[in-house]
Amino acid sequence: MTFTEQLRQEADPIFEAIIEHPFVRGIAAGNVPKEAVKHYVKADFEYLNAFMHVYGIAISKCHDRKDMAFFSEQINFVINSETHPHHNLCNYIGIPYEALQGYPLPPSADHYIKHMKHYAHEGSLGEILAALLPCPWTYLEIGNRLMDEVKPDENHPLYEWIHFYADGEMENTTMKLRRHLDSWAEGASEREKKAMTDAFIKSCQLEWGFWEMSYNVETWDLNPKHATSTSL
């Protein structure tokens, strides 16, 4: 069993909790509360900006140009491809994508970003990889599961979102991150493997927290669940 297979096995309860989260089930049914979707897009736009920053820091810790090229490719993927599911969500709620950019992060998203940046600045390249991996991996599994369960056609309001995350490009990204992490783990000490495991599991938990934050429209002001305000 590879190191990443061990990580996935340990995190299985969290992956299953994500798949069964009401927000994800709402994506499957095409009826996510629109206020929750708006909250998600606002936070995810800033989260992906931070994700690219972490990739950039990872480049600074690379010694091999192939590794540098890999992280550079991932930045390009986020900028040029991962906006597509956001556009689908924005079309679903009838709000322009540009209107949901530049907002302060809710508490759980703020925590997640600081968690990643901690490993980016203080951790090894292996710890950075472990902290980054749950994001694409959980989304890949969500996309695949929903494609199998729902078998959405183009009439499904969130077909593009589901199709994007079940697509081969997301699988390719996940597998490349896994191969890099497995390769790093081969030469890692037991202490570093423990640190990488902690980074991975915490990121998985924070992925679940991101869905929970979005669904509950979490704010620093502790607004009621599913706030009905129409303000952006």
Rank of each mutant, 00 (worst) to 15 (best):
P157A: 04
C204Q: 10
L146C: 02
D182W: 08
K225F: 15
Y119H: 04
Y119W: 14
I128W: 00
A58W: 04
L7E: 04
D198H: 09
R179T: 10
H63N: 15
A69D: 07
D44K: 02
A185D: 05
P85N: 07
Q101C: 12
T173D: 14
I14L: 03
V78H: 05
H86L: 15
F200D: 05
C204R: 00
P157V: 08
H226T: 10
I162Y: 10
L125V: 07
E169S: 12
N216F: 04
C62A: 15
R145K: 12
T228S: 10
D198G: 01
P96D: 12
E160T: 10
D44T: 04
Y112R: 02
D110H: 15
I128L: 07
Y103W: 14
E212I: 06
T219D: 07
L146T: 06
C62T: 14
F3R: 04
H121R: 11
D221P: 06
A130T: 01
R145T: 13
Y119T: 00
S60N: 05
E46S: 06
T83F: 13
M175A: 09
S60W: 06
C135L: 07
S183M: 01
D198M: 11
T173V: 15
K151S: 11
H63D: 15
G26D: 00
P107K: 01
D198C: 07
P224Q: 11
Y97E: 12
P157L: 09
P104V: 11
L158E: 01
N216Y: 03
P157S: 07
V54F: 01
H63A: 13
Y215F: 15
T219M: 02
E20W: 12
D44R: 06
M1D: 11
E218H: 06
Y103Q: 05
W220L: 11
E73W: 13
H118V: 07
Y92Q: 03
Y55N: 09
E149M: 01
I95M: 05
L158F: 04
P136T: 06
E212M: 04
E169H: 14
I113N: 02
E169Y: 12
G26C: 12
T4N: 08
N144P: 04
T197C: 02
G94Q: 09
N88F: 00
M213F: 08
F15D: 00
T219H: 06
L125D: 10
